[in-house]
Design a protein around this nucleic acid. Structure first.
Length: 283
DNA sequence: CACGTCACCTGCGTGC
DNA sequence: TGCACGCAGGTGACGT
């Protein structure tokens, strides 16, 4: 489910807490809390080490900071780090008391009485406990919002391959953080057809793509994520979609009907006029 | 190397 | 109401 902006929204909620009265969702920051116990309800949610060792190792460690790299959440502990990838349907909830929800797979209890619950209906999400986060993150491509990710770097990387632009942008080893929604939105804003061979993207249009990627991600974060079914988090970026999920509706720029095709088994939405395959449109 | 297919899972909406 | 089907924000292991 979550792409970079949703993961970032969760990160900020966990490290800063959420204000409001408790009934309306007030949550403390988890920073500084000490783990007292761990429940694993679906063993395969734990990627590394095995579930038994995971449960035995965590108690006594304190949460020092919550970071993010691509779509991974990084929980820096007083010793080592826990990483979580939410995949399609994962979510993290901070709660206290009461029964576990139906889809909770891993629950981390803190001495302070609160608990962090990894909720994941489809069971695709994974959790790691490692000494060094790089053991998990080593293969990731650049962080799109980092200052070091320049338009020149993107342009050069695009020139280095003939792969179709959409699957390429979704390849986490090429660039870390884009998923199906934000990729379609970025390609639309840059006026690039999703099947365009990367090498055919001009320098000028690569610049526009760089700009679009950073724009849609920043907007997503600002809107608290796209959260189609994360109602409680109030993500509003879904209201900003220009193409995603808009098959049959009019392009907001030219009025042409938005098309849906399959690219690498994924639904892909685009405007056949604004995003023509031939490079003859204004950037 | 680039691409297609399937597997991993559950829940929801739709149409019969 | 029941049921089959298609669909979903992601990734990894295959085969060609």
């Amino acid at each position: 489910m979550p792409e970079l902006p949703e993961v970032e929204s969760i990160r900020q909620g966990l490290r800063l807490g959420v204000s409001g009265d408790e009934r309306a969702g007030e949550r403390p920051s988890l920073i500084g809390m000490e783990i007292s116990a761990v429940d694993v309800l679906w063993a395969r949610s734990i990627h590394t080490p095995d579930a038994a060792e995971f449960v035995a190792t965590l108690p006594g460690r304190a949460l020092v900071e919550v970071g993010r790299r691509g779509k991974f959440l990084i929980f820096h502990l007083s010793a080592g780090a826990m990483l979580i990838h939410l995949r399609m349907s994962g979510d993290l909830l901070v709660e206290r008391g009461g029964d576990y929800g139906a889809h909770q797979r891993v629950v981390i209890h803190f001495k302070q009485g609160w608990r962090l619950a990894f909720n994941d209906p489809r069971k695709f999400g994974r959790v790691w406990l490692v000494d060094d986060p790089e053991q998990v993150l080593a293969g990731l491509g650049p962080e799109p919002l980092a200052p070091s990710f320049s338009s020149q770097l993107l342009a050069e990387k695009l020139q280095a391959t003939t792969r179709q632009i959409k699957p390429l942008l979704m390849d986490q080893s090429f660039l870390a953080g884009l998923g199906n929604i934000y990729t379609d939105e970025a390609l639309y804003r840059a006026k690039i057809h999703p099947l365009t061979p990367a090498r055919q993207v001009s320098r000028e249009r690569a610049e526009a793509l760089w700009d679009s990627i950073r724009f849609v991600l920043a907007e997503g974060i600002r809107m608290n994520g796209a959260s189609i079914d994360w109602v409680y988090r109030g993500g509003a970026f879904q209201n900003q979609f220009q193409v995603y999920g808009r098959k049959g509706q009019a392009c907001r720029a030219c009025g042409t009907t938005i098309q849906r095709i399959l690219v690498g088994q994924r639904s892909t939405f685009f405007c056949p006029i604004c995003q023509s395959l031939t490079e003859n449109r204004p950037v």
